[in-house]
Design a protein around this nucleic acid. Structure first.
Ligand SMILES: [Zn+2]
Ligand SMILES: [Zn+2]
Ligand SMILES: [Zn+2]
Ligand SMILES: [Zn+2]
Lengths: 132, 132
DNA sequence: CTTGACTCTATAGTGGCTATAGATATTAAA
DNA sequence: TTTAATATCTATAGCCACTATAGAGTCAAG
């Protein structure tokens, strides 16, 4: 299987697949005489795994670590747990920041009646005076 | 006033202030004989304005646009309003994504009892089997 | 044998900074 | 006055996870 076919099967761009290789997340099985990458079907599973992890916004280095752990099925899975828990913490922090942001932005939209002159616009006034 | 003092007053790093200059968000009033940037107190207000906008996660190009509008106090402020409304939309989208993320991550943590072997870990199994 | 689709490497760009390196300028202490 | 410490200058590279080129080579169908 060549890279274009892998791309179609996984819905990842060809560049992304090559990028994952540079980051040592995957390997091609080898090359053709013409230097084209050749893959076996195992790579599809690996890329789907990476995709799921990326959906969870795990970093590529976290994913690399999880892959290393997967290669030692007898190790204790504590570290996997920690990775996911840290990710939950990060998500909670981001959510809190976004809630704060939303409150502030909506207060701003409330302070403008849309057809004022810029010089009188409540939004711009608020941005000048805000003391956060 | 030299850049170090501006940095202290605004709590922005010297590099950040210089970066904002490269992006045409601020200008120094001039240079000393030794080529050091010189600022008047006006720049403090400008940088505070930028800081407030950044707190709202507005992009530097949005901030630049708002600054241009501030220079035309007789223009209608509709565009400012649109910028902020777009930002609210973005924040809402991101919050939705994060809520989805949090649900998935918490389901993952529930699927592992922490002291299993990697080969039996529910987290890793879920990551393999997930069909999202 | 040519055409077109595919692949290769290398490089630059994204955003908003941060962090160097190496040179010059200014200020304060000795 | 010399010297040492601090501040500033420009230019450049790095961060993250890609994306998008350019220019060259490879391969299959007609
Ligand atoms: Zn998934
Ligand atoms: Zn307004
Ligand atoms: Zn503020
Ligand atoms: Zn587990």
């Amino acid at each position: 299987m060549k890279i274009g076919q892998v791309s179609k099967k996984t819905d990842l761009s060809v560049q992304t697949i090559r990028y994952y290789e540079t980051q040592n997340l995957i390997k091609s099985a080898g090359r053709t005489d013409g230097n084209f990458r050749v893959y076996d079907s195992k790579v599809i599973e690996q890329l789907e795994f990476i995709k799921h992890c990326r959906h969870l916004d795990l970093s590529l280095s976290d994913i690399k670590r999880i892959n290393e752990l997967r290669d030692n099925p007898n190790a204790v899975c504590e570290e996997v747990n920690e990775l996911i828990n840290d990710q939950v913490k990060m998500v909670k922090i981001k959510m809190k920041e976004l809630r704060h942001l939303k409150t502030q932005l909506e207060a701003l939209t409330d302070s403008c009646s849309n057809n004022q002159k810029v010089g009188d616009c409540g939004i711009i006034k608020s941005l000048q005076e805000c003391d956060c």
